[in-house]
C-alpha cells in the first residue's frame, strides 16, 4: 500500500513528469515565429485572408525531421500532395494540387529566400534546388485574389 500523498505532493510529481517527459520541443517558439512571419500580401490585418492547412498522411520517412518522402496537406476544398527528393545538398519538390488550378506555390525555408512557381493547368508543379530546413508551403489561389492557403512548418 502506497503511503497517502497530499494533493500538493501528487501535483509536484506530475509537474516533474510533465517537465521531464513532455517538455515543449526545442525550437517550438522559433518555428512558430517563422510560421507567422508570412507576407500576408496586405498591410492591414483586417484584410488578411488565409487558411491554415493540416498535414496528413506523412509517410514514415516524411515525419518531421525524418527526411524526404510523400507528404500531403489539405483544407476543406484543396488537397496538395508533394514528393520530396534529395538532390545533393538541396531537394526537388514535385507537387500536385487537387482540384487542379494554376495557383501560385511558394516554399519558405528558414534563412533562405522564398522559392516560388506556378502550377500548370493540371495542378502539377515542380520546384528544384529547394534548400533543406524548416519549411512552410503557401498556395496563392489566383482565382480568388485574396486567398492564401498555408501550412504549419515541416522539417524537410
Amino acid at each position: 500500500m502506497r503511503t497517502h500523498q497530499s494533493d500538493d505532493e501528487l501535483m509536484s510529481e506530475v509537474a516533474r513528469l510533465v517537465d521531464e517527459l513532455d517538455p515543449p520541443p526545442p525550437g517550438l517558439v522559433g518555428r512558430a515565429l517563422f510560421a507567422v512571419a508570412i507576407d500576408t500580401g496586405l498591410r492591414d490585418l483586417d484584410d488578411v485572408e488565409f487558411e491554415v492547412a493540416r498535414w496528413a498522411e506523412r509517410t514514415l520517412a516524411g515525419v518531421r525531421g525524418g527526411g524526404p518522402g510523400m507528404l500531403k496537406f489539405f483544407v476543406d476544398d484543396l488537397t496538395v500532395m508533394i514528393n520530396v527528393t534529395r538532390t545533393g545538398e538541396r531537394q526537388r519538390i514535385d507537387g500536385w494540387l487537387v482540384p487542379a488550378g494554376a495557383h501560385g506555390v511558394e516554399v519558405r525555408v528558414v534563412d533562405h529566400p522564398t522559392t516560388a512557381t506556378t502550377a500548370d493547368e493540371g495542378g502539377r508543379f515542380v520546384l528544384t534546388e529547394v534548400p533543406r530546413g524548416t519549411t512552410q508551403l503557401l498556395v496563392r489561389m489566383h482565382a480568388e485574389q485574396s486567398r492564401t492557403v498555408l501550412t504549419p512548418t515541416v522539417d524537410l
Binding site: P25, L28, A35, V36, F50, V52, R54, R64, L150, P152
Partner: peptide, 10 residues
C-alpha cells in the same frame, strides 16, 4: 506543434 502554429496564425 502543428496546432501551436495553427492557433497563432488564427
Amino acid at each position: 506543434e502543428d496546432v501551436v502554429q495553427t492557433v497563432w496564425l488564427a
